[in-house]
Design a protein around this nucleic acid. Structure first.
Length: 185
DNA sequence: CTTCTGATTGCCT
DNA sequence: GGCAATCAGAAGA
């Protein structure tokens, strides 16, 4: 099943849930999305909270684009821009079950255990070759390719990871039973 | 198993 | 000047 037009024209929580189980490839490397987190403009943990800045400008632009930023000075994080009505929402892709292009991904990651290959936002960005080049890039064409799951997957909801503000908001979504999560549920 | 630390840089206050 | 949606490796229990 391909992505319906308007898939990203919804609130971040709906999109974050909808992406669980979806297949994502970047230039032939990727797999099944097993963990996401939602962020929106009314959320103190979100980069968009407090308005537009040079870094988060892409979050306020058209939906269905990649928002890529550097974290802790050394890792990249991949987000998908979405929005219901108010702009400024995005979904962080936190973990992927590797299915395609294992060789390329292992080479980029330096031959690591299979279940650690893409289990974490920084890890998957490195495995898929994500960097600032892709900030603002549309998701409906190369190098991106996406497909939704045929049947609705089981989803487990949890609290988001690694943030200090909005730390009790349960906007982390995980594929039930997956062993490729960045952290067990 | 768990907790702790260093790495490293652009952006915001 | 301080901090951040992290990771890998080391050390301790």
């Amino acid at each position: 099943m391909t992505l319906a037009a308007g898939f990203f024209a919804r609130d971040a929580v709906s999109v974050a849930r909808g992406l669980i189980g979806a297949e994502l490839q970047v230039d032939g490397a990727g797999g099944r999305i097993v963990e996401t987190e939602a962020y929106d403009a009314g959320d103190p943990a979100s980069h968009s909270f407090g308005g537009m800045t040079p870094r988060n400008a892409v979050m306020f632009g058209p939906v269905g684009r990649a928002y890529v930023y550097r974290i802790y000075g050394l890792h990249w994080c991949l987000n998908f821009v979405c929005a219901a009505e108010q702009p400024g929402s995005a979904v962080l892709i936190r973990a992927i079950e590797p299915l395609y292009g294992r060789d390329v991904m292992q080479a980029r990651r330096g031959n690591v255990a299979d279940r650690l290959l893409c289990s974490g936002p920084g890890r998957l960005a490195k495995a898929l070759g994500i960097d600032a080049e892709l900030n603002g890039a549309p998701l409906d064409g190369p190098p991106f390719a996406m497909a939704l799951p045929a049947t609705a997957p089981g989803i487990v909801e949890a609290v988001r990871i690694g943030i200090s503000k909005g730390a009790t908001t349960p906007w982390r979504f995980c594929l039930a039973g997956s062993r490729y999560l960045s952290k067990p549920v």
